[in-house]
Amino acid sequence: MSTPAELADWQHELGGVLIGAGTDVQVRAIEGLGQPPVRTSDVEPPSEDGLWIGRDYYGGRTIRIDAAIRVIGQPGGVLDRLAALQDMADTPAVRGAGGTTMDLRLKFPGRPARTVRGRLRKLEPDLTQMVHGFAPLDIEFQAQDHLFYDDTTGTTSIPLGLLTSGGLTFPLMFPFTIAGDPRAVGRPGFLEVAGTAPAWPVLRVNGPCANPTITHVASGRALTVQTTLAAGEWVEVDTRPGWRTVLRDNGGAAPLTPKSRIDEFVLQPGLNELQWTATDPTLTSTLAVTWWPTYKAL
């Protein structure tokens, strides 16, 4: 996974192309960064005043960017910038399958860069002034959800059969301290998750093992994959909405047990504990956990 480019304040990146401050694509305004669209289930009670307030669901936010391409005296440069902006959206990796997305990265003062995942839905230039190297530009980006993501992922690796670390060594030397905070001793099953919203992890079990079970201790939610892995083989459980797949290294699928709810397996902001078990006489298999810190707002 490549490292994202560093962004300056008021500079953004659409499909790998820099826009905003210090670039040839000026950004005049951005809309759609506040509260996302809401799907309500409100009901008007018959023969009665008022409203029964039901459960609310957020839709994917639509971000509109009022911009302009400005490359003075270079009419061809306007078309070059326009082509670059639509290039990523036209790749099979983005539009060639359901659920695939591209990134819109945003950088505002006082915040690190945040990423929105979705697809480019509108890129409409006004070419009437192109001869002067100037073209107003309407951009519309449809996000797959209402959330903002960190540029960088959180990762950890958890060996099989290692539930804790530390302990006491005799003879004891006084005074001594027992660390009640698992962060103090670096216990491998504990994950410190940044952000303000739950994060959906990607869980990869590396063999050799059979029938691995991964448990989120606080919630009690568990995922059991019904498969056998030889050394060098792996199975990956992707819990992210829009994906939610269980795939093996050979491209085939692997089943979960009926009680495994992939749609409820999330990491909460703060400290999380994961435990996992599997049949592995060698005790050499590992669990790799990857997540993107997630934010409800910029």
Rank of each mutant, 00 (worst) to 15 (best):
residue 91 T to E: 13
residue 92 P to K: 06
residue 92 P to E: 10
residue 92 P to Y: 07
residue 95 R to C: 04
residue 95 R to Y: 07
residue 95 R to M: 10
residue 96 G to L: 07
residue 97 A to Q: 13
residue 97 A to T: 08
residue 98 G to C: 01
residue 98 G to R: 10
residue 98 G to Q: 09
residue 99 G to V: 12
residue 99 G to E: 14
residue 99 G to C: 13
residue 100 T to K: 14
residue 100 T to Q: 15
residue 102 M to L: 12
residue 105 R to E: 03
residue 106 L to E: 04
residue 107 K to F: 07
residue 107 K to S: 11
residue 107 K to Y: 07
residue 109 P to T: 05
residue 109 P to F: 09
residue 109 P to H: 09
residue 111 R to L: 05
residue 111 R to P: 00
residue 111 R to G: 00
residue 112 P to A: 06
residue 114 R to Y: 15
residue 114 R to H: 15
residue 114 R to T: 10
residue 115 T to F: 02
residue 115 T to H: 01
residue 117 R to N: 10
residue 117 R to V: 04
residue 120 L to A: 00
residue 121 R to S: 13
residue 121 R to G: 14
residue 122 K to Y: 01
residue 123 L to Q: 03
residue 123 L to Y: 06
residue 124 E to N: 09
residue 124 E to Q: 13
residue 125 P to D: 01
residue 125 P to S: 02
residue 126 D to A: 06
residue 126 D to G: 02
residue 126 D to W: 07
residue 127 L to W: 12
residue 129 Q to S: 15
residue 129 Q to D: 15
residue 130 M to Q: 15
residue 131 V to T: 11
residue 131 V to C: 07
residue 133 G to C: 06
residue 135 A to D: 02
residue 135 A to Y: 02
residue 135 A to T: 03
residue 135 A to F: 04
residue 135 A to E: 02
residue 136 P to N: 11
residue 136 P to H: 12
residue 137 L to Y: 09
residue 137 L to K: 09
residue 137 L to W: 10
residue 140 E to T: 12
residue 141 F to Q: 00
residue 141 F to V: 00
residue 141 F to G: 01
residue 141 F to L: 00
residue 144 Q to S: 02
residue 145 D to F: 03
residue 146 H to E: 15
residue 146 H to P: 01
residue 147 L to A: 09
residue 148 F to W: 12
residue 148 F to R: 02
residue 149 Y to T: 03
residue 151 D to A: 10
residue 151 D to R: 06
